[in-house]
Design a protein around this nucleic acid. Structure first.
Lengths: 150, 150
DNA sequence: CTTATTTAAGACTTCTTTGTCTGAAATTAC
DNA sequence: GTAATTTCAGACAAAGAAGTCTTAAATAAG
């Protein structure tokens, strides 16, 4: 798989938050139920995004999480790096350390091209912009498709 | 990671076999030592490729494995499918079942493009052709770089 | 102050991938 | 036929990813 499950859940939850107008807090219970993601697992992922400053949290009744201003302008690339780390964008496709221009593996040139395309695509998409587009195009964020952008 | 370790090892071992002129058998011991891959683990991966007809094996002294004619003309795509399955080329980047043109996820269009580029790249590269190119360009197949195309 | 709600933190379990080990079967050489 | 070499097959172990559970800390409302 390209992205880990943690990463996919993190992206979907971030997009869920981006889909909500205003900046109220949304509880993890709400998010996990809407997106059909394990509550405790999602908690851990969003704690990571909170630590990285993309998400703000608030404890207590009516508490929850919301995107920080950093988070609203974050790209999907930023979030992937925060959760999965940079490996996908730096490592050799054959896992060879030191693979590069001087001593490339057979895939190197081609993989650098394809990898760059993925990277650029993720860097072009900010949560805010996807939310705008989502309101027009009704992108799906759940398996069942009951979610709707507001 | 894009490809599993099994897949990476399988590709590297296949390329190693492709690098050898003639069609002698090469023992798994030799391959695992040259490529610095766990012997028993490599054994299992090549058994899979043997079962799929890309590799032929022969038991006994001076036995080993070699590429079948199917294997020589196989693309990297074929081998990836054989080892990792088709998921990378069919699944939604956000893991949503039924993601498609009618109900796309926010990444769908972009991911289909990038994914297609990876797929085409892998489909364009046959073991034979890489071996030819490898002899000119001395591609790396090992971490230490002691391997050389013949 | 007490209770309910919510995130934070971390231990723990389960599942998958990765890696190791042992013995069987086939083949060759003597 | 015997011994050595090699793949085949499957059990087993270790490590990492994914998911669950429990308790603590913060906050709000009565």
């Amino acid at each position: 798989m390209l992205l880990s499950k943690s990463c996919v859940y993190g992206l979907r939850a971030s997009l869920y938050l981006a889909s909500k107008r205003g900046n109220e807090y949304h509880s993890l219970k709400e998010i996990s139920e809407e997106l059909e993601i394990s509550f405790h697992f999602l908690t851990k992922i969003l704690q990571q995004l909170t630590a990285d400053g993309y998400v703000e949290s608030y404890k207590g009744p009516n508490g929850g999480v919301r995107l920080s201003s950093n988070g609203q302008n974050a790209t999907l690339f930023d979030l992937v790096i925060a959760i999965d780390g940079p490996g996908l964008f730096t490592q050799c496709a054959l896992g060879l350390p030191g693979c590069g221009l001087q001593e490339p593996c057979p895939l190197h040139d081609h993989w650098v091209g394809a990898r760059g395309k993925i990277e650029n695509m993720l860097k072009r998409m900010t949560l805010n912009e996807i939310a705008e587009e989502g309101k027009e195009k009704h992108f799906r964020l759940t398996a069942e498709g009951e979610f709707s952008w507001q």
